Simulated scan of single mutants.
Amino acid sequence: MKISEIDMVTPKSVEECLYFLSDQEKEVRLIAGGTDAVVRMKDGIGRPETWINIKGMDSLRYIREESDGIHIGPLTTHTDMIHSQLLWKKADVLASASNEVGAIQIQNMGTIGGNLGTASPAGDTIPPLFVLDARIELNSIKGKRIVPITEFFNGPGHTIQKPNEMITDIIIRPQEENEMGTFEKLGPRKAQSISIVNVAMSLKMGEGQRECLEGRIAFGSVGPTVIRASKCERMLTLSSLTDDTIKDVADIAWKEVMPITDGRATAKYRRSMASALLARGLYRLMKRWDEK
């Protein structure tokens, strides 16, 4: 079967899209940016009977702040997030990650909803969403439900999203004025390919010298899903974040991750790089803090 022989429908509204998704007679899949779809079909997976093309549904492409958090539409592209002053001010860890996604062409086409739906453990925008306590709104013809991102993923390529559901909103926690974040990534080529290891982190700082009141750290590509580094997070608040303390925190990271060996890297290499990336990110954050 050629790709051109697959049926495609283009709904004009969310309601019409949900109607197509509710059709149990056909195997259907949503497509927006499509940056992953063709690759998967060439590998013999993810080939539906009908594509539901939602790329032009502008009602699902937005970034805005409301009383309950920052809302991001699932069709918001990585380029949209890179250019968002709101995200750089109140969710810099997510904007930073978007800046590291693929090449410019991928940033222009790829969407945050697609990154979530693909559910790759190496997805660059997913660790920042863990750090920002994201909530995912899932919509079906039967109604809506909102789930925390910690409950959204079941494993590599698998989520709790039902076949008749689509992501219609992503809500994240805005960072506070004394909070700053960053994203670090290791790939075979800089910003061009899938992560070997990545890490998102955000620190809430106090008035003392390099005093960390709270830290959030999430690793990608080192386990079946994103891993929160709870031991490292606790260590961040025990003493001033001197260079020696940062080294001690980073040394613990290898115990938190659960990588595998595959064609891109060995498990041992990933463990070492998880520690190195965490240290690099913390050093950079402290440099930013010292310069304030």
Rank of each mutant, 00 (worst) to 15 (best):
M1G: 10
E16M: 06
E16K: 15
L21K: 06
S22C: 10
Q24L: 09
K26A: 04
R29Y: 00
I31Y: 08
A32D: 01
A32N: 02
G33E: 04
A37I: 11
K42N: 12
D43V: 00
P48M: 11
M57L: 15
L60M: 14
S67R: 15
I72L: 13
P74V: 07
L75A: 13
D80P: 00
M81D: 06
L86N: 05
A91I: 09
A97D: 09
N99L: 06
N99R: 12
I106G: 01
Q107W: 12
N108R: 13
T111P: 02
T111F: 07
S120T: 10
S120Y: 05
P121A: 02
T125F: 01
P127H: 07
L129P: 04
V131F: 11
R135K: 15
I136D: 05
E137T: 15
T150V: 09
N154C: 12
P156D: 14
P163Q: 00
T168H: 00
D169Q: 07
D169A: 07
P174V: 00
E179S: 13
K185L: 03
L186C: 03
A191W: 01
S195N: 03
V197F: 12
M205V: 07
G206R: 09
G220Y: 05
V222C: 14
V226W: 00
S239H: 04
T242A: 03
D243S: 12
P259S: 14
T261P: 13
A276M: 06
A279C: 07
L282D: 03
Y283R: 14
R284T: 09
M286I: 09
K287V: 09
W289L: 13
K292M: 10
